[in-house]
């Protein structure tokens, strides 16, 4: 009880200070605020460069994708590595959990009464029809991420969600038959390797790491702008591999305590 009083005091003090600070903020929707237009008398905001020059630099209309995969390529690469590392960490934690003698395992037997239940026919059939549509849409999102909202992260999550849907509707084994544990960790590593590979190839051709313009002779494009556009697509595919594999692996491990048997 005392801890709740202290928590309330701490939260109210923090919130009060922040609310006091809010009055110095630029007003909502102001196009001339410092984050949007840069400091007065100083340099222009970097976002203005992105808005005006992205199409000239890389022929990509979706500015968010271009900044994500090209201008801030390092950031995105290591975010992908963080996702990969989180997947490995969950695998290690849950696998150490699952292999020990677990008295709660018997609980799972009770929960698994739905296996072979006729109530699952409608759900199972519907999901079987929906899953390919979700996957095709996910591929569209990855491939069309330059021209519309989307990209590697969104498409990867959608692909992972399609496997999760399969596991939820019928059985985890049905999903693992299509994407086994060995395969999804291989895909996760391949995704990071594709991303880093684009950077390394650029480095071997004499440019900086992840400087895609120099890949023009390899990708057979006209002009370094199109080379950057195509490299962004390749990099997004790598991101999608990793995110898809790790999302599915997180679900598979969390729902079965790492045993990959008797899922949710």
């Amino acid at each position: 009880m005392l801890s709740k009083v202290f928590a309330t005091i701490a939260v109210v003090i923090t919130g009060g200070l922040l609310l006091y600070g809010v009055y110095d903020f630029p007003s909502f929707g102001d196009p001339n605020s410092p984050p949007n237009a840069g400091v007065e008398g100083g340099a222009d905001s970097v976002s203005q460069y992105f808005i005006t020059q992205t199409y000239n630099d890389s022929k990509v209309p979706n500015i968010v994708t271009a900044v994500l995969a090209d201008y801030r390529g390092y950031d995105t690469m290591f975010e992908t590595v963080v996702v990969f590392a989180a997947g490995i960490a969950i695998f290690c934690i849950m696998r150490s959990l699952g292999n020990a003698n677990d008295p709660a395992r018997e609980k799972d037997e009770i929960h698994s009464f739905t296996h072979g239940d006729h109530n699952r026919i409608i759900i199972g059939t519907t999901c079987r029809i929906v899953v390919p549509i979700v996957q095709i849409f996910a591929l569209y999102v990855i491939a069309h991420g330059h021209y519309s909202p989307g990209g590697g992260f969104q498409g990867g999550v959608l692909l992972g969600a399609s496997f999760i849907l399969l596991a939820l509707s019928s059985d985890l084994n049905a999903a693992l038959k299509r994407l086994s544990e060995k395969n999804y960790f291989a895909l996760a590593a391949i995704g990071v390797l594709i991303y880093a590979g684009f950077g390394l190839v650029a480095q071997f051709l004499g440019a900086n790491f992840l400087e895609y313009g120099v890949l023009q002779p390899i990708l057979f494009t006209d002009g370094p702008e199109m080379a950057r556009s195509h490299s962004m697509l390749g990099v997004e595919i790598g991101v999608a591999f990793t995110v898809m594999a790790i999302m599915f692996s997180i679900y598979a491990n969390l729902s079965t305590r790492g045993t990959l048997k008797n899922g949710l």
């Binding site: 968010v64 994708t65 999102v141 909202p149 990209g151 969104q154 999550v157 992972g160 969600a161 679900y251």
Partner: peptide, 13 residues
């Protein structure tokens, strides 16, 4: 783009 990600990640997964 953020809305798309949030719909897939925050609301779904």
């Amino acid at each position: 783009d953020v809305a798309f990600t949030e719909a897939a990640v925050g609301a779904g997964v």
